[in-house]
């Protein structure tokens, strides 16, 4: 019996994501709430650090780019944590980072502060007062 050299992985993998959701109450939004970070970095491998951040995407990206406090908070994050996506779905606007293993999966105070600040801009754009 020959070994399958191109075996396909299947089933749940050791990759987790936490989606930080701002609910929209059933309203459907599209490209205006779509954004992701584009990072400028310095260094390589373990010493790779974030030097600058630009949000690319819909109208929300322009709002986030104009917040210098948010940029200052984000350049202090580890490279992997500074990769953030904003996606509109049927039940809410989702803000999430990259996949992490169960060992890495968790949240720091600094990372939560960034997600909360991004969510405050999303809330304001939805017409609700931020907390």
């Amino acid at each position: 019996m020959s070994e399958d050299l191109n075996s396909q992985p299947w089933g749940a993998q050791d990759r987790f994501q936490a989606h930080f959701i701002v609910k929209t109450g059933g309203q459907i939004f599209d490209a205006e709430f779509l954004a992701k970070t584009k990072l400028k970095t310095k260094g390589h491998f373990a010493t790779k650090k974030v030097a600058g951040i630009v949000w690319v995407g819909g109208n929300i990206a322009e709002t986030l780019n104009s917040d210098s406090d948010l940029t200052n908070m984000m350049v202090k994050l580890p490279y992997k944590d500074a990769q953030i996506w904003i996606e509109p779905t049927r039940n809410g606007i989702r803000i999430h980072g990259s996949w992490k293993s169960s060992y890495e999966f968790g949240i720091s105070k600094e990372l939560f502060a960034v997600y909360d600040k991004v969510a405050s801009h999303v809330k304001r754009a939805l017409g609700s007062p931020p907390v």
Binding site: G11, F16, Q17, I21, K23, W85, G92
Partner: peptide, 30 residues
């Protein structure tokens, strides 16, 4: 986005208090 996974597992939600984020959903790939 091109990195959207084809299949995920829902691990449920955590409700937040006093935050701009209403709820956190935990998702596993595959």
């Amino acid at each position: 986005f091109t990195n959207t996974p084809a299949m995920v597992t829902n691990h449920g939600c955590v409700k937040l208090r006093g935050s701009n984020i209403d709820i956190v959903q935990i998702i596993q790939k595959g």
